[in-house]
Every structure is written in C-alpha cells, then in structure tokens.
Design a protein around this nucleic acid. Structure first.
Lengths: 209, 209
DNA sequence: AAAATAATGTTGCATTTGCAACATTTTACA
DNA sequence: TGTAAAATGTTGCAAATGCAACATTATTTT
C-alpha cells in the first residue's frame, strides 16, 4: 500500500519528520480530533488506526465524506476540512503525525536526497484520493439503488480482478456510502439475488453475469 | 485564479516548460483528445479553452466526472483517466500543454529556484480538485432534488458571500451535475419558488431564508 | 451463559422521481 | 431577418425510494 514514506529508509524517515517539525499525537476511539488541534496549514498522516471525515448538515444530518485508513493523509490544504462544518473522527485507537504544510518546501528539506521520493509520494497519495472520489461520484450519479449497487460491484470486481469479492463495509456503512436507505438497499439486493444477477453470502458477492 | 505557473515569471515559465519537455497541442471543439494521445504518465495543462472528463457506462450512459477549465490540470496520474472508460472532450477550441510526469522530479528541475513555487502550485491545484469533488459528493449524497438544489445553492451563496448569486451552468448542465432528471428539477425549482424559499430570474438566484 | 446491544432482514404505504411527450421561449446562424 | 436548433417549461403517470415499524439474527459485554 502507498504511503508518504515509500522508498525512504526509516532512518531518513526520522530525519525528514524532524525537519518537518512533525508531532505525533495518539487518540482514543470516537474522538473528534479537529476540536483539539487548531493548526493552520497541516498535513495529518494516519500512522496507526483510521479516521472518518464527516460533514455536518444544517439539518443535523451527517455525511461521511471520506474514510482515511492507515498511511493515508488528510489536511485542510490537501483535502477540504472547513472547521465549521467538518469533523474528523477516529474510528479506533489512532495515532496521527502532524506536519506543517509550509515546511514541506523548506530549503533544508528540498536539499535532501530523498525529497524527490517524498514529493512523488505526496502527489501519488493525493491522486489516489482523487481516484476514490471519482469512483464515488460515478456511483452516486447512478439514479437507482440497483445501478448504484451494480456500479459499486463492478468497481470492486475490477479491482479484485474477479467476479467474486468481499464488501469491505457493513451493510449500514454501504448504504451510507451509496447514500440510500438501508432497508431499500436490502430489498434491492434481494431482487438482484432472485433475478439471478448476483449471489451473496455474508459480505461475499459473486457476479453471475 | 490558481494556475501551475503562479509566482513564476514568464521567462522562467518558458525555461521550465523546456526542461519538462512540454508539448503544446491545439484542438478543435468537441474532440476526444485521449484518442490522439497515448502518453504514459502525463500532466495536461489547459492553456486555452476547456475540457470535460466523461465516463462512459456499459449501458451507453455518460457521466461528466469533471469540468476542467482554463489553467486547470488533468492527467492519468493526478486525476483518474482510464483510457478504456474515460473520454476527455474539448468543450471549445482548446490548447493543451503536455508535460511528462516523471520529468517534474528530474534533478535539473529540482535545482531551479522556482521549483518550490511549481510544486506548491501543483499541490494546490490538486487540492482544489479534491475540494470540488468533496462539494459534489456533499450534494450528490442528498436524497431529494430539493435538498440537492438547496445544498448546491448554499455552497454557491457561501462562495459568493451573498444570498444573491448566479448559476454558472445551463439548466441542462445543472441537472447533469446534480444527477437528476431535468424536468423534475424544473418542477422542484418551481415549488421552491412558490413556497417562497428562493427567487429565480434567469440564472440569477436569491435565497429568501 | 444470559442479557444487552448492534446488525440485518421484511413489508406496507406515501412521497418523490424519472420518463415521455409536448409547448414555449431563447439563441444561433445562414 | 427569418428559420432551424437548442434550451427551458409543463404535466400525467408508473416506478422507485424513503420512512416507519417491526422481526430476526449476530455480536459484544458483564
């Protein structure tokens, strides 16, 4: 899996983190980490655990904008966290490394011989996030629950390179991701099964077409 | 507006483009530019005109994944263009500057004194795209046409800093962006008007709440 | 192991939506 | 300036969906 320190030795990693004036902060499960931190331009690296970026509605609804897993990055400049409307919630026990955005282009850092790798990794990680968001947009623009499910399954199947794959969500989370009513989604899954499009066993899905 | 050469003099811009072995290619309106180009890892800069990245369904439906305006960037590494499913279509007479992704971290380029600005600009542009995609996801996750419209208007209003703003789309394009039926959208706009939530005059909208 | 909690499955019903088919208005352009 | 083409507006109706309320099955906790 990609990470910000790919192709950088652990020794250089430490050197880099020191140059970037990084800070490592541990959190418990279910904590809103942005309420603690009031950094200006930061990049957060999930060193352990995972996060969700949640957008809170004026109606009190909350939308999961993004799941941030281990080694992924987030931040107000590289992603979009408006402190008023967004919350960053730990999904489990999580450790975050904070680096100051402005430091990533400090002369010291640029001079190092691992800088190229660092910049490439950063761009790669952002590109991956763009990819993930494009995928979700592709799915969300489908107009029926059926088409959303089939598009999602198509993407999973393509990634796995197989007609058989595992849904990496609970069904509650899946309904959230697709932005549909959970019970209506269950119903549609039933129809897809009885009509012979798919076979479902727990979280394991097989496409029959 | 942001662009890849912000804070870089035009002289240095030319120098940089030469170092990056860039190529400038003009296109007519309505052309699928990816069919012509078969580059490996490239970044395309819209120097003039504008593009749409279109995703083509197995059903023959096409979804506009993204509008790329002047000075914005696209590419298979920084965005997500799978040549099998995606098309990049010019919306008008358009000029694209292609640079080789691998060259942006070549030793020559890194040594220049404008490299910091260049990298920062690149990251900034990608961050803007992430932002745009997050906004669209926020909108698309709303479950009714009404809520999609109101969320979209809220964002426009916030950006403008005013209850009065102009929709930068035709209604056909807006319906595409919201991923709803155009006539159903018109109907909902009518309801919002008669219920006194908004006032619409052409593309000019005023929020009354 | 029992109890509590969370996840999943089911179904009736009202609402929303897409779709189709058409009318009207605006814009492009020959 | 007149005509074609594109954009916008309207409406009936069938289909899809959210919602609510509940049943059943898994999972966690004590």
């Amino acid at each position: 899996m990609e990470n910000l320190f790919e192709n950088i030795s652990s020794k250089n990693r430490e050197k880099l983190l020191k140059m970037l004036k990084s800070q490592s902060i541990p959190y418990r499960k279910g904590v809103n980490i942005l309420s603690n931190v009031n950094r200006d331009n930061f990049i957060g690296i999930v060193d352990e655990g995972s996060l969700q970026i949640v957008f809170n509605d004026y109606n009190g609804n909350s939308i999961i904008i993004e799941d941030i897993e281990k080694n992924q990055i987030f931040g107000n400049l590289i992603s979009s966290i408006n402190s008023d409307e967004c919350e960053v919630i730990t999904k489990e026990k999580t450790k975050i490394i904070y680096i100051d955005y402005d430091n990533i282009t400090s002369p010291d850092v640029i001079k190092t011989d691992f800088y190229i790798a660092f910049v490439k990794n950063l761009i790669k990680l952002m590109a991956t996030q763009l990819n993930n968001k494009n995928e979700r947009i592709e799915i969300l623009t489908k107009r029926t629950i059926r088409d959303k499910l089939l598009e999602y399954f198509r993407i999973l199947s393509k990634k796995k390179g197989s007609k058989i794959f595992t849904i990496p969500f609970s069904f509650i989370e899946l309904a959230n991701y697709l932005s549909v009513d959970r019970s209506a989604m269950t119903r549609e899954l039933k129809y897809l099964k009885t009509e012979g499009f798919i076979k479902v066993d727990g979280k394991r899905v097989r496409l029959l077409y």
